[in-house]
């Protein structure tokens, strides 16, 4: 994966002013995705993974305060998405064009008033062609490619005519119809049954091989991430706390949170009946977050006086492996400088 980065997120901060304080949805998130690569973004609810995706598309809530850079590298030059007007024409070209997104609940992403075909054609007309007939044939072709049977008929159906799995396929067809370079998939299979999830995941891998787009795959499910991602970034409380390629992450996690998570999830093949090693405590809410490691209050390896007074930076702790934890001298060194 030595390709040039397609998108680079640098020090992204999204602050949401709420009645009882400022919620730091993402707090200094940095990562990059290369052409054709799949980055898995894993974390629990409220960790900021969805807000990160929404920031790339500039669809975060209007009152959110965003700083940092999101650099989109194209042949024609580099664009900083954060600097764009969220309602201007430039972002509209990127949104649904270069970057497309699929959501957890496909029913709410389609308008119930228009046929599937109309909505896909609209996306094609915006980004690819001006010709209605051509747009329709592209749409039919896309529906066929995502495995929808009888695409020429299905194109004139309404979203509620389709089953959950078929709707998610249609959603993918719509997202891919503009030939995006980056596909953001926000928990796309969470609402689906496992047997259907297997179908959709295979479809996404096949389409990636075919179209060569990069995928930012967001999920809370380590099984799905292990299956889909090339590289993984683990988020906790608004920050990326560990990032490396998928094999290293699952074979030798470095951050205590990732390690604890791996031990806590039930998995087939683990000796059954054996107690799970639960992580104590609750996921904190990042409102008026102190300057400390977010995991400090639940961490089995917490070092009082270190972890609760400074925030660890994400540093290289092993080849191709970054972690944000003071257990590693590299991180301590970076903090002292």
């Amino acid at each position: 994966m030595a390709c040039a980065p397609l998108i680079e997120v640098r020090n992204l901060r999204v602050a949401l002013p709420l009645e009882n304080g400022v919620l730091m949805a993402t707090d200094g998130v940095s990562f990059s995705i290369a052409e054709g690569e799949t980055l898995g973004l894993v974390g629990e609810s409220g960790c900021g993974k969805t807000m990160t995706a929404q920031s790339i598309m500039r669809i975060a809530p209007r009152f959110a305060h965003t700083t940092g850079q999101i650099l989109l590298h194209e042949a024609g030059g580099t664009t900083d998405i954060v600097a764009l007007d969220p309602r201007g024409p430039a972002i509209r070209k990127i949104r649904g064009g270069v970057c497309a997104m699929i959501f957890q609940e496909p029913m709410s992403s389609f308008s119930p008033l228009h046929t599937i075909g109309n909505q896909i054609e609209e996306a094609i007309l915006l980004h690819r062609t001006q010709d209605r007939a051509e747009a329709r044939s592209i749409a039919i072709d896309m529906l066929g490619r995502v495995g929808i049977p009888r695409p020429a008929e299905t194109i004139d159906k309404y979203p509620h005519h389709l089953s959950g799995g078929m709707r998610q396929r249609a959603m993918i067809a719509m997202a891919l119809s503009s030939q995006p370079r980056l596909l953001i998939a926000d928990e796309p299979t969470t609402a689906l049954d496992v047997t259907v999830q297997a179908q959709v995941l295979r479809l996404m891998r096949e389409l990636q091989d075919e179209f060569g787009m990069a995928i930012l795959y967001i999920s809370h499910d380590l099984g799905v991430i292990a299956h889909m991602a090339d590289r993984v970034a683990v988020m906790y409380l608004g920050s990326i706390i560990e990032t490396t390629d998928v094999r290293r992450l699952f074979s030798a996690p470095r951050h205590p949170y990732t390690q604890a998570l791996m031990r806590a999830i039930p998995r087939i093949g683990k000796r059954s009946g054996e107690r799970l090693e639960a992580i104590a405590g609750n996921v904190p809410i990042p409102i008026n977050k102190p300057r400390a490691c977010g995991f400090a209050n639940r961490c089995p390896a917490v070092m009082p006086g270190v972890c609760d007074v400074r925030r660890p930076a994400l540093e290289v702790v092993a080849p191709e492996h970054r972690a944000a934890c003071f257990l590693y001298p590299e991180v301590v060194e970076a903090a002292d400088v």
Binding site: G164, T195, Q197, A198, L222, A226, H227
Partner: peptide, 25 residues
């Protein structure tokens, strides 16, 4: 059998191909 094979294990080495069922229930 299909249900078991569709379980995704948190293990990138075990990316075995699930038995794909056609359609939905």
């Amino acid at each position: 059998e299909a249900l078991l094979s569709a379980v995704l294990r948190p293990d990138p080495e075990a990316r075995d191909q699930p038995i794909l069922l056609t359609g939905e229930s």
